[in-house]
């Protein structure tokens, strides 16, 4: 569960952080944690809704948008998503990862160009720009399922 309006505390460690008019920008091996979800990235920009608060709290108070760029990792106990850029938009509660996206779950792997994860429905959707069997080397969505026996319930 990341951001959203669960109100769970978000802790962010970074080499450098600065505030610029409602934007909280962290850079240098950013490590953000909320509940059991963790995000690693080179640079993260959080835009909060102006609710009067100032400084770090106001930005953190009601997160409207998070933009993480560079070596982006989104790690949960059961899954790990990698990509170039990760964008969370509170409006549709979607987390969109782009740029050589790789989704790992146990030993199964999914790759594609874009992953849209909806935090409400807990549905991850991976799509590729190129469509159709004729893509040849422009890769489409690829799924490598390593089923460790069908009956075992992967933890959500």
């Amino acid at each position: 569960q990341f951001a959203g309006n669960s109100g769970a505390p978000i802790t962010i460690d970074a080499d450098d952080s600065r505030l610029e008019g409602g934007l909280a920008i962290f850079s240098g091996q950013v490590d953000a944690r909320q509940g059991d979800v963790r995000i690693l990235t080179d640079e993260m920009t959080i835009t909060g809704r102006q609710n009067g608060g100032s400084g770090i709290n106001s930005a953190m108070g009601d997160i409207e948008k998070i933009v993480a760029v560079g070596n982006f990792y989104y790690i949960t106990p059961t899954q790990e998503v990698r990509g170039e850029r990760g964008v969370y938009t509170q409006a549709d509660n979607n987390f969109t990862v782009t740029g050589d996206v790789i989704l790992l779950q146990d030993d199964s792997v999914v790759t594609g160009d874009k992953l849209i994860y909806n935090l409400d429905t807990e549905e991850a959707r991976v799509v590729s720009e190129c469509q159709g069997r004729k893509c040849g080397n422009k890769q489409r969505v690829r799924v490598l399922i390593k089923s460790t026996g069908a009956t075992e319930q992967p933890a959500t």
Binding site: L103, Q105, V110, G112, E123, A124, R125, V126, V127, S128, Q131, G132, R140, V141, R142, V143, L144, I145, K146, S147, T148, G149
Partner: peptide, 12 residues
């Protein structure tokens, strides 16, 4: 146990 699929999109 290994299955490889390729498609336009995946929904998990």
């Amino acid at each position: 146990n290994l299955i490889y699929l390729e498609a336009n999109s995946l929904t998990n």
